[in-house]
Nucleic acid binder design. Sequence first.
RNA 1: GCGCCCAUAGCUCAGCUGGAUAGAGCGACAGCCUCCGGAGCUGUAGGUCGUAGGUUCGAAUCCUACUGGGCGCACCA
Length: 655
Amino acid sequence: MILEQITDQLTETLTSRVLALFGHAVDRVILQTPPKLAMGDLATPLCLELAKALKRKPREIAEIVTKDIHLPMFVQSVAVEGAGYLNFRFDRGAFTAAHIKTVMTASATDGERVIVEHTNINPNKAAHIGHIRNAVLGDTYVRLMRWLGYRVETQNYIDDTGVQVADVVVGFEHLQKEGIAEVQKRIDDPAVPFDYFCWDLYSRMTAFYQESEEAKQWRRDTLHRIEHQEGETAELAALIARAIVRRHIATMLRLGITYDLLPKESDIIQLHFWNRAFELLKKSGAIFFEEEGKHKGCWVMRLSETEQFEGMDEPDKILVRSNGTVTYTGKDIAYQLWKFGLLDRTFHFRKFLTYPDGHVLWESTHDDPTDPSAPRFGGAKRVVNVIDARQAYLQKVVKEGLRLLGHTKEADNSLHFSYEMVALTPSTAKALGMEISEEDAARAYIEMSGRKGLGVKADDLLDALEQKATDAVREGSKTEGVSDEEMRTLGRQVAIAALRYFMLKFGRNKVIAFDFSEALTFEGDSGPYLQYSTVRVENIFRKMSERGVDAKIDDRSLDALTLTEGLTDEMWELVRISAELPAAIRRAVDSLELSVVTHHLLELAQKFNSFYHKYPILNEKDEAERQRRAVCAEVFRRTMVGALELLGIPIPLRM
RNA sequence: GCGCCCAUAGCUCAGCUGGAUAGAGCGACAGCCUCCGGAGCUGUAGGUCGUAGGUUCGAAUCCUACUGGGCGCACCA
């Protein structure tokens, strides 16, 4: 907060000075942290940029700009250094005293309404680590957005009428020869998780279809019956989808990931969202009926004239098939219109479940009347869809659909939060018992495939992480007298940190080649490292109160701090990096690169651990020095407590 | 064929809208627990930033071409 004030004021001051002194209008002022602490706390290459326009030497400009400059509060000095950089140095004591009062305070939640759609796992099999990346990115993005003041609604779209569900239904009816009663028994059976059973069943379907023409027809019939809600098949599909969604919700809850609403595709169909969108699309001329050629009998969206789709062989997108059924993309356009409040109809809503913390998860429905206690859903100003990069084309089509309908603003506010897939290293795939061809073994990574049953299930990974973390806790030195139950809780907390951090630390455009040993690391650049640092600082303050050591953070100690100016470089860096976090969060959200935040926190934690070894607090006899150190530790503590909450990482009592 | 993405230390990755001597983790090597917890700390070694041009006072970053790898381009989602 305080750093943002300084940058704002410096930008203003420099802009107006350059205008007054040289009659030159600056369109932007870059203010950044210098590479070395000795170069100050904030720097700008402004005078280097101006050199050409003003036809003068950078240092000469710098001297003129800085002469008699009025510096903002907390900025102690400015110096011209290097090729002509302006380096600003802060009043460390005053800055620290001011900063500690506003560390990690969130913005008021009165920002614009945003819908974030994430997770969206087909309800036909267990979640795998690719889904975890999606959900962790989505959930963390939501937390950061809320902290920035946006009013965010989290939606997890359930495609309960697609072919993937149909495949599992065919599997139960024709391979397993099981109906509703038998399937219900499997759902209730605690020995084999239902989503695991379906994972295997689904992977058997490809071969089944290949060897039988009859089976292919069953698949078509099943899909038709599900879409039209016909008979026991539709009922079975609904039962399966619902049971698997519950499993997915439970898996994600292990990571602290929750949702506000589950919109279901079946309800989009039943409530005729598509019919309404279809009318709008036809009326606007965005789509037309193909009388001739390859797409004869289909309704298609003409994209060949759109700049984005130039050069494609087949840029036109079919929205309604020749048999009259709607494609996923068609339904997605209707759904996107609804999210913006552009359809003159909405879902009915009912409670799906209540989370342990009391938060209610709602689902869409079409038959029951809406629960009067339901909040207002939809009608957002901005829509963010967290979907992997392979679906970029589809996302573009949806966006273009809005534009063709004349909703230019909404098209611009439709954001595809794109990220690359999680693949497996050949060694991991082999460890899972997969048969790897020689060709595949030579690759850097192997793509997961739900259809082939090739992948690491989310719950399996979490189990392994929890086991390893619990063992690590047990081996720790500080666990005498800790119950087994408590150690498992600590293990779970460490596992969450390891996995969430692992999914965030890579840039979103990097393919993650998943490797067990790498994901199971609790050292270095990892979530547990952040936890460990936080546990340490919490321990200091706990011990201080236990031992009656005085290191209260009150106005007196803060005043003393401002007067003494005794902050060493190490102490000061702790404060400054903490103060830079809000800017890092802003940058992360604007660029959708959440790794910016994890990276910043790693740096902060590293500084703290150095500080920790160099500057003992409890045993420091000099009171002023002890309080100075305690203030820095407190800044770190508040920063990490707030930041880990934003990353969804719990803070263990001990590790 | 067209489009998107990736290429930086032995390995995995950072490097913010072009800015100061390219950083971190792991691995390797050498150290550090009578001292708030060693899941930690300190130090050493390790880089023609895929290649070749170009723009610029300044390029890992922007432009062009190329090389190698990945992913898309369904009446699937």
